[in-house]
Amino acid sequence: MEENATDEQLIQFYQKGDAEAFEVLYARYKSAIYHYFFRQVNSTGTADELHQDVWLNIIKSSAHFTQQSSFKTWLYKIAHNRLIDHYRQSSKQPLYLVKTDTQDNQADERTETEKTIDTSSSQSNEPEMSLQKQQISQLLLKAVHTLPEEQKEVFLLHEKSGLTLQEIALVTENSFESTKSRLRYAVKKLRHHMKLVLTL
């Protein structure tokens, strides 16, 4: 029964004392939340800490959850706020503030991608296609990592968490148009990074 229940029903069951309902919820979202943090901070330790904080916050404030809003939006809003707190607390500046000249980076990455493609093509005779794929994945992750934080967040939320543009706008507290614009630029940059690999 609980496997087929909606997120809102599960949190309601947990409010009534059903611990298994929380386990189902956690299983549904643990990977997406952890991925969201890990891709943003690029550190296992920090991602663990942020992930744990978010879920403890969910446990603590589950009684205050109202059925009027979506659980998914509520969860990612908590995660988004926790990430902003992390950036404020840490002395580290976000990556996009350091790298201002994106043109140069794109040129460097392009050459790196070309190198990777060349390497993979030179190794095309070898049956280990998985290695090539893995290298391409690494290139893509590097390209995502170079994205500005706002664009990266929108891309990650859209791509891995499965949120719609409206939901992302709600979570990040931005307008729909600016959210869409950020995603558009993020996709364009990534496409140009992976130009030789990606087809239309």
Binding site: Y14, A19, F22, E23, Y26, K30, S31, A32, Y34, H35, F38, T44, A47, D48, H51, Q52, W55, L56, I59, K133, I136, S137, L140, L141, V144, E159, K160, V187, L190, R191, M194, V197, L198, T199, L200
Partner: peptide, 26 residues
Amino acid sequence: SLSELYQDIESPTPSDTLDQSILSIA
């Protein structure tokens, strides 16, 4: 193709100890 490529990338997952600690608190 970008979306397909990104979906194929293996996602990091939290450790089992982290999962157990969160679930025990819950």
